[in-house]
Amino acid sequence: MPLQAAIFVMSLECSPAHSFAHKLDMAKKYVISGIELWWEDLLAVRKLRGMCDKHSLQIISIQSFYHYEGLRDRSIHEQQELTDDAAVRLADLRKMADLGLDKRPIMRFCYESLAWDTNADTWEKSLEVVQQVDRPNFGICLDAFNIAARVFADSAAPSGCARDGMKELVSSLERLRCSVEPAKVFLVQLVDAGRLKEPLVEGHELYQAAQPSRMSWSRNCRLFYGEHGGYLPIREIAWCCFMI
């Protein structure tokens, strides 16, 4: 499948004051040809596809689908409510993928690691899940922020960086380039983040006891690649992802 570029609609101003129609207007104004939808858009907007067609915008994906596999009571996502049985989690994901295979056109799912995730906090772990699910419509999402945030950055450290972070990142990217099949890369996300002036620990204005530090950092400090204040090695990660 040819490479398709798009922007996440939440990046087109995510304030409730900005309607979905306004976001599409902004995408068209800045000559963006594709968008990645947020699931809340599906709940809030009817005739969404027609609106995108009117703006000559292609919908390349819907982000994000979560709180699904391995839930003990199928409604709660706290760690203590997640099963530690990998077979149950894989069965859930295979069932979802099989449902997608029955659709026409086929619905594809990409599995993403989050730097603070309970079960898959590295790209290696998400790749392992993809390989074990073993469905043609189930692939991997490579997110530059989450790759960097796990091995290079540390929002709870005074420097904003993990010890030997760049060395660990280089090693991680070498493994990634050699391990991931090109056909299994369904989505690549390029995004940076700002370095905090103070460690994100208790007492910091962004600190939330119920959230891991990296999660709070992610939700408050994301930047476009190249935007002033970004410090993650996005270029190196992007080069690796597109050389797979």
Score class of each variant (00 low, 15 high):
Pro2Met: 09
Pro2Ser: 11
Leu3Gln: 10
Ser11His: 03
Ser11Trp: 02
Leu12Glu: 02
Cys14Asn: 15
Phe20Val: 06
His22Gln: 13
His22Gly: 02
Lys23Gly: 01
Val31Phe: 13
Glu40Gly: 00
Asp41Pro: 06
Lys47Ser: 14
Gly50Arg: 11
Cys52Ala: 15
Ile59Gly: 02
Ile60Ala: 00
Ile62Arg: 04
Gln63Phe: 04
Gly70Thr: 09
Glu78Met: 09
Glu81His: 14
Asp84Val: 08
Asp92Met: 06
Asp92Gln: 07
Leu93Thr: 00
Leu93Arg: 00
Leu99Gly: 13
Leu99Val: 07
Asp102His: 14
Glu112Arg: 07
Leu114Glu: 00
Ala115Asn: 11
Thr118Ala: 11
Asp121Val: 03
Phe138Gln: 09
Asp143Ile: 01
Ile147Gly: 00
Arg150Asn: 12
Arg150His: 12
Ala153Trp: 05
Asp154His: 03
Ala156Glu: 10
Ala156Lys: 06
Arg163Asn: 13
Asp164Asn: 15
Lys167His: 10
Ser172His: 09
Arg175Gln: 14
Leu176Phe: 08
Val180Met: 06
Pro182Val: 00
Ala183Gly: 13
Phe186Pro: 03
Glu198Asn: 12
Glu202Val: 08
Gln208Glu: 13
Gln208Val: 11
Met215Gln: 12
Asn220Ser: 15
Arg222Phe: 10
Phe224His: 09
Gly226Tyr: 04
Glu227Gly: 03
His228Leu: 12
Gly229Gln: 11
Tyr231Ser: 07
Cys240Thr: 15
